[in-house]
Design a protein around this nucleic acid. Sequence first.
DNA 1: CACGGGGTTCGACGAACGCCGATATCGGAG
DNA 2: CTCCGATATCGGCGTTCGTCGAACCCCGTG
Lengths: 232, 232
Amino acid sequence: MPREDLARRIAGEITLSDDPGATLRKWRTDFDVSQTALAEQLDVSSSVISDYESGRRESPGIGVVRRMVEALLDIDESRGGGRIRQYARVISAGFESDIVQDLREYPTSIPLETLYEAMDATELVRGDQDRISGHTVINSIEAITRLSSEEFYRLYGQSTSRALVFTGVTRGESPLVAMRVVNPTPNAVILHGLTEDDLWEHAPALATIDGFSLAISNRDLEEMLEDLRRLP
Amino acid sequence: MPREDLARRIAGEITLSDDPGATLRKWRTDFDVSQTALAEQLDVSSSVISDYESGRRESPGIGVVRRMVEALLDIDESRGGGRIRQYARVISAGFESDIVQDLREYPTSIPLETLYEAMDATELVRGDQDRISGHTVINSIEAITRLSSEEFYRLYGQSTSRALVFTGVTRGESPLVAMRVVNPTPNAVILHGLTEDDLWEHAPALATIDGFSLAISNRDLEEMLEDLRRLP
DNA sequence: CACGGGGTTCGACGAACGCCGATATCGGAG
DNA sequence: CTCCGATATCGGCGTTCGTCGAACCCCGTG
């Protein structure tokens, strides 16, 4: 069923998009598929894909969209189904994939250091626990603007033994405050997209109070997500 | 945002459907909108709608689908937005609307009897609490076959002061067992779609142990859901 | 620098869409 | 019995889609 859920979501997004072509492209690149490969899978000329993506047809038929989506998922499946599984985790947890950018449960617990390396993160505060068994990557802006309070709870709560990664952080004030309010707290919080100079002055103190590790990272987002997916 | 989420979901379902026309019809009737009214909203002839629903065009353009969906939602909004809110509740809780058929939080708590009346239910066991402040209607078959264990937890847990209604029940064994396992338990469980004779023999005993009310109902499903929506 | 891979642009053309209006059926209201 | 709202069926017609293939661009690499 996860495949169907994801398919519906992609199809719905493309269908309602102001610019269906751009949305299609977004998903194709997200799945790491070239126009050529997609065209091959669909048994059409590669210019067809380009035409759609460039918006030459403003209202493609439903059939085209369906075929495109299925083809993308087919390709992913033939590669092992990594992307499908990744999105399935986020979706079945009930979140949008643009809010929760990744959500994983490792087969076994790993040292926090391993995560730091994958993210090229610098630790500022060392918490009580130094192993984690999963991580959640949250777009902090989207989360703060779009989540309801119950959803926050669902997202931040039940996060023991995990690391929460916040992307698009400017100072780190809101994520840290949220961690104070919520219970239980994660083992580690990693702020992404800022340098140590930008960090909110009270951040380390708050982390210390609740006993979780705090780190920051400023690596390229896409690359970082890519590496996180490969983790254990 | 709930409107957009719902719109995407409907659009996705139509786009990927084997029979887009039938799916469109399903949603239109679900929103209680006549072909004529939809056509009027879209400023087209009513035969257009009929043609689409009957499948005369096998691959309608994305634009058509978008306009249809938006029109349905516009109509609902002009009527107060009841359906949108209803689905929004289910969706933002992270479930599919065919698994969770309704999910409500009343503005104020109501006596259990009020719910019984709306469902034409017969109480078999009287629990410790006789008021509820919300209800969740769950398709028991879909739930058992499609939900993961975490999702179960999300659905059944955090259900204090609520009534859980299970539809499509044959004997009531699995819902009652699930209630034993989960914590906290709801104030009431109502099994729908069976008669007292069909009931699993141990059901009343289990309800008594956990102190929740148990009732059964065998009314027509659609009518019942309709009345539940109107509740307080 | 030539070659290949990824992508874009565009003319062309048959097929299918998008919409209309007329006609027809059917069940309920008056 | 008639009128009306809701839905279905269908011929018709202008528009757009769906697809191809050829030409072309950029960039990295042997």
